[in-house]
Design a protein around this nucleic acid. Structure first.
Lengths: 153, 153
DNA sequence: CGATACTTGCAACTGAGTTGCAAATCGGGT
DNA sequence: ACCCGATTTGCAACTCAGTTGCAAGTATCG
């Protein structure tokens, strides 16, 4: 589940959301699209080359406005970091895998209709987000288990 | 899903886990049991009366050792806070509801067998935790929507 | 182009959680 | 019951993701 995000056009998304089309928003949005997997604000900031430098604070603010506009989606992890992905690229109801060692987050694909049907009714509140996350060791980290010096979180 | 945690005995749990039975660990463990819903380290610290004062740092360290020993279970939220609940009180696979306004977390009950069966196989990694969390407004906060001055996160 | 509302960058701050280290406590062996 | 090494605690200082206030800059609309 790591393909097909490139049909999301930054300018078009901002237009539709009624947000001003600033360079900073376009740069951040492009970084999220380019990543093609959920990434953190810090990763976005570090991945920007000198030409498209954007202040770290701005990255946070842009992500917040993009999330509020429904353009990106935030995903929290066990260690309190927030990851962002394009909202347009998936069904809002899908599961993620988070490696507690290398801290990479991958998408496991959309949840089946039956699963969602089963989860929501049990909730007698006004729900607006459903997040399923599986934590553990990814294949790479598991393979390198014996070579590692430090311990996972 | 807020009952039946009191059968977890602090001393017995520590004994079984092979952890030293210090006052601090017992005090923190009692606070988690007393809460009868997932609570944060800060809440635990504030809920302690003068007689059972434990340093804030110790609360974090105790929770970490209790989690590692499998006595309590940590649950992350969208705003990066960690909630803890007794591991013995539920099936490890259950869903939580988190109110993005009052930040109270409640348990929605265990996930059905079919749901878990559906989620795990899609994951080709070494999974050790499955967390399902539904975020939104709880009934109290929804009811008071019109009265509120500040906005939810 | 010019007015106005929104956005950015900077610096200083917040708040959850961590770390280093000396003092206190636990618990197994005698 | 007491001693000693191993573990745990408290304190203070730190880290680090994320936020805030504010002045300067920029987008958009007429």
């Amino acid at each position: 589940m790591t393909t097909g995000q490139n049909h999301c056009d930054p300018l078009e998304s901002l237009e539709k959301a009624g947000l001003q089309k600033t360079i900073q928003r376009i740069v951040v949005l492009r970084a999220v699209i380019r990543a093609d997997r959920p990434i953190t604000a810090a990763e976005i900031y570090e991945d920007l080359d000198v030409a498209e430098r954007v202040n770290k604070v701005t990255v946070y603010r842009v992500l917040a406005s993009l999330e509020e506009a429904g353009i990106v989606r935030g995903i929290p992890t066990v260690d309190g970091m927030n990851y962002y992905e394009m909202a347009c690229s998936h069904n809002p109801l899908h599961a993620h895998f988070y490696c507690r060692y290398c801290r990479a987050m991958t998408c496991l694909g959309p949840l089946g209709e039956e699963i969602c049907q089963n989860l929501y009714p049990s909730c007698r509140h006004e729900a607006d987000a459903l997040s399923v996350s599986i934590t553990g060791l990814c294949n790479d980290c598991r393979r390198n288990k014996t070579k590692r010096k430090e311990e996972p979180l």
